[in-house]
Amino acid sequence: MTMRPITAIGFDADDTLWQNEQFFRSTESHFTGLLKEFAEHEIVSEKLLEAEKRNLDFYGYGIKGFMLSMIETAIEITDGKVEARTIGDILDVGREMLRHPVETLPHVRETLEALSGHYMLVLITKGDLFDQERKLAQSGLGDFFDAVEIVSEKTATTYRRVFSRVADGPERAMMIGNSLKSDIVPAIAAGAYGVFVPHELTWVLEQVEPPQDAPRFRQIAHLGELPDILEAITGA
């Protein structure tokens, strides 16, 4: 009996299945407007990014860490003179992000429907546990997935562990996502296929160069092209 080359498919969530980065960008624009009396937009954005980098090891990924980084940046930009109402505004816009309805991306549902039952589908996402669970529930996509993994970071070790525990190992798995840094490069390093689905907005800390000379690397314009990629690899 011939073994199938791919039995499991992992999917990133934010900006792969549903919109995410656009809400961070619009909130950042609002935030820089709050501090326009103290610094130019570009300077505030630069300081915010520095704070986010510093805080990843403490707060991880997600909206709550973003809120704390905005507060820290406001204190820094204003030399400690930020008003309480500004802090309150930052908290308000952060809560609004946490309440924002989920907007699934084109071709997502029909692609998951086509693949469900033929492959083990695994959601592999990083970020705040409660927020990711909320978005998955509101998306209406949860029933398509055989397993859900919400992790603190995505590394080759992460993909080896997840695909070995819930599937047939990384060598017979494929990872789909919009981040080369988190979804594609480490998945390929673990031995899986990596299918890059670019999103028009990708956080600068998730941007790296595509893997060179990687036979398991693929790129598609949208998820609707995924079944063709699988057919080309598996011949079925």
Rank of each mutant, 00 (worst) to 15 (best):
V93P: 00
P186D: 04
P170N: 11
S45N: 01
I71F: 09
I150S: 07
D92R: 15
M175E: 08
G224T: 08
T158N: 08
I71L: 15
H222F: 09
D89N: 01
Y61W: 01
V197P: 04
L123G: 07
T7Y: 03
P215T: 04
G33E: 02
T32A: 07
G80Y: 12
G142T: 06
F24S: 02
K154W: 10
V195Q: 10
H222T: 07
P210L: 13
V204N: 06
S152K: 15
G177R: 11
R109W: 05
K181S: 11
Q19N: 10
I220K: 04
G127S: 04
V93G: 00
P186V: 08
M70R: 03
T202E: 13
Q138H: 14
Q219F: 00
G169M: 06
L17K: 03
K53Y: 14
I229S: 00
E149F: 08
A173P: 01
K36Y: 04
A189R: 12
L34P: 03
R109N: 05
D15C: 10
F196S: 06
E171A: 12
N178P: 11
E103R: 15
A187N: 13
G142I: 14
D14S: 08
V82D: 03
G88F: 05
G80T: 11
A214W: 03
R99H: 13
M1V: 13
D12E: 05
R216C: 04
P198F: 06
V122F: 04
I77T: 02
S152N: 12
L56N: 08
D57I: 10
L129G: 00
L56S: 02
S116V: 02
E76T: 06
L141N: 11
S69L: 02
I229M: 00
G142V: 12
P210M: 13
R54A: 14
D79P: 00
L35A: 01
L123Q: 11
F31A: 00
F217K: 12
K53L: 14
G140C: 08
A187R: 13
G142R: 15
T104W: 04
D57T: 14
M120C: 11
I75L: 15
D143T: 15
D128Y: 00
E96F: 00
T111Y: 04
S182Q: 09
T27Y: 00
G191Y: 08
D168A: 12
F130V: 13
I150A: 08
T78R: 02
T16D: 04
G60Q: 07
E72N: 03
R25F: 11
V44L: 02
G224Y: 08
T78N: 09
E28C: 01
E37Q: 14
V148C: 10
L205T: 13
A190H: 06
A137M: 14
F31G: 02
E206K: 12
L129A: 06
E171C: 01
R25E: 15
V82I: 15
K47D: 02
D79A: 15
